[in-house]
Write a protein that binds this DNA or RNA. Structure first.
Length: 197
DNA sequence: TCTACGATTTACT
DNA sequence: GTAAATCGTAGAA
């Protein structure tokens, strides 16, 4: 079951919380990978010093964040990793939710192939760059539609059980001034795949 | 053009 | 615990 477009037309904080426990699906030529979202971070747009679009910055890189909610914002970081974000809020309100960690649900063999050399199960997908590699996510998918797409999309978890949401400061945004300590990182309490406790 | 650095990962001490 | 890897992008010149 897909999410309605309206789900993504909300502020990043709401989307960040409500995506927890649901599925990220990757359809590759060689098979399907399904992963449960266990950790997210909200980047709240032009007022958030930690956000790439702070102050209304609109550049080639951040252009996809200005799309309507539900699209994918994918960028390269440190010259060697990609990060996947779910664009939130209506068109021209550039907010996004960073997917920081997922738990493989289906297609573990493919994940292991994509993360050759990594033995420990949790180390396969417990970080934004790690999960991008595990699900073969790169810039070619930037701007794709996560609400209605086919190669990479989000699905509701019909059997979602109860869990507690932990709020914590976001990771590695020391430059964000007073926004550095906002508890805009959200994760499922007790989940083994969360990147940092 | 030129320069500095990052919403990270990995290997090594 | 510390540091290297590695390059596209942003902002300055």
């Amino acid at each position: 079951m897909r999410f309605p477009r309206s789900f993504f037309m909300r502020d990043a904080l709401s989307v960040a919380e409500d995506l927890l426990g649901h599925y990220l699906v990757r359809e590759t030529g060689r098979g399907k990978i399904i992963a449960k979202i266990v950790e997210t971070e909200a980047y709240c747009g032009i007022l958030d010093k930690g956000c790439h679009t702070f102050g209304g910055r609109r550049t080639e890189r951040t252009e996809t964040m200005f799309l309507p909610g539900g699209h994918a914002y994918i960028y390269m970081i440190y010259g060697m990793n990609f990060c996947l974000n779910v664009v939130s809020a209506p068109k021209d309100d550039p907010q996004a939710v960073l997917i920081r960690a997922v738990e493989p649900v289906k297609g573990l063999e493919l994940v292991r192939e994509n993360r050759k050399g990594i033995l420990k199960e949790t180390d396969l997908t417990n970080g934004p760059g790690k999960l991008a590699k595990a699900l073969l996510i790169d810039k070619s998918l930037n701007g794709c539609d996560l609400a209605g797409g086919k190669e990479l999309f989000l699905e509701k978890n019909p059997g979602l059980s109860d869990f507690n949401i932990v709020s914590a400061p976001r990771i590695n945004i020391d430059y964000a001034g007073e926004f550095k300590d906002k508890p805009w990182r959200k994760y499922i309490e007790g989940n083994r795949f969360v990147s940092k406790i």
